[in-house]
Computed example of a mutant assay.
Amino acid sequence: MSRRRGWTYMSTSDSSDIADLSMMQLADSFFPTGMYTTSNGLEALFYSGRKMKPAELRELIRIYIEHQMGPADCAALGNAYEYASKSDVKNVIRVDKILHSMKLVQEIRNASARSGTQMLRCTNFFVTKDKVLNEYAAAIKSGQAFGPYPVALAVACNALSIPKRKAGLAMLYSFSVGMVGAALRLGMFQHLEGQKMIDELKPVIARTVDENINRPVEGMWQFAPQVDIVQMSHENMTSKMFIT
């Protein structure tokens, strides 16, 4: 330990603590990926006059998690993480392209790519020597890859030594908070109701990660046609608070 101006500093640090802190950093809305500007179609539902109760929104988020985010985004994150850990950028890009093609709604597809690219750009500002991160970022810049958020997050988490499962938990938690946050900004619920909703979604998040984080690329899927329709309806709105 050393002392400086009355403060005590540890000369060594626990690497798992640093990884956990890095996970919280990436999952925090303060991290500038632009995810807080998305509602995933919730804004369209709100302006359609649909009055939702907290339990109904929780059920909607569950559908997103179990039928879109889990088998597609979480599976893509898991595969991209494994390839990144082996410095296999070619297959990271392969997962990138598969996931990008699976996002059927243009607004959602573009938002994911913007947020993923921003995730890499911000992480690359303080993690400058990770080979996979640098090569993947270069592939996006040259047009060889698209940068969907789950794949970009996997590469960033690998660079920061964040375990794969925790990366999946952080992604689904951030998604849930983003949806609840959008509902709060739209005036649908109060903060206490939002926190209760997030707490009730924790078992769904944990179970979905466990079921999908090791899913093979060939097994990736998503099927939530009503959600797709809601998301597409947002594209046709003339005045919007959110980009999705």
Rank of each mutant, 00 (worst) to 15 (best):
M1S: 09
R3F: 11
G6M: 00
G6H: 00
Y9A: 10
S16G: 06
S16L: 09
Q25C: 06
Q25G: 04
M35F: 07
N40L: 15
L42W: 07
E43Q: 00
M52G: 08
P54V: 05
P54A: 12
R58F: 12
E59N: 09
I61L: 00
I63A: 08
Y64V: 13
Y64P: 07
H67A: 14
A72L: 09
L77W: 02
A80E: 07
E82G: 14
S85Y: 05
S87R: 04
S87A: 10
D88E: 03
V92K: 13
I98F: 10
S101P: 02
L104A: 13
L104S: 14
Q106Y: 14
I108F: 08
R109G: 02
R109F: 05
A113E: 13
T117Y: 11
Q118Y: 01
R121S: 11
T123W: 00
F125Q: 08
D130G: 03
K131D: 15
N134F: 12
E135L: 03
I140C: 00
K141M: 09
S142D: 12
A145V: 06
F146V: 10
F146W: 04
G147D: 09
Y149H: 11
P150H: 05
C157I: 03
A159G: 08
K164C: 02
R165A: 01
S176F: 01
M179D: 03
A182H: 00
A183S: 10
L184I: 02
L184A: 05
M188S: 09
L192Y: 13
Q195A: 07
M197T: 08
M197S: 05
T208F: 00
V217F: 08
F223N: 07
D228F: 13
Q231R: 12
M232V: 10
S233M: 11
S233N: 08
H234W: 10
E235A: 15
N236L: 14
N236M: 14
M237L: 09
T238P: 08
S239E: 13
F242R: 07
T244G: 06
T244F: 02
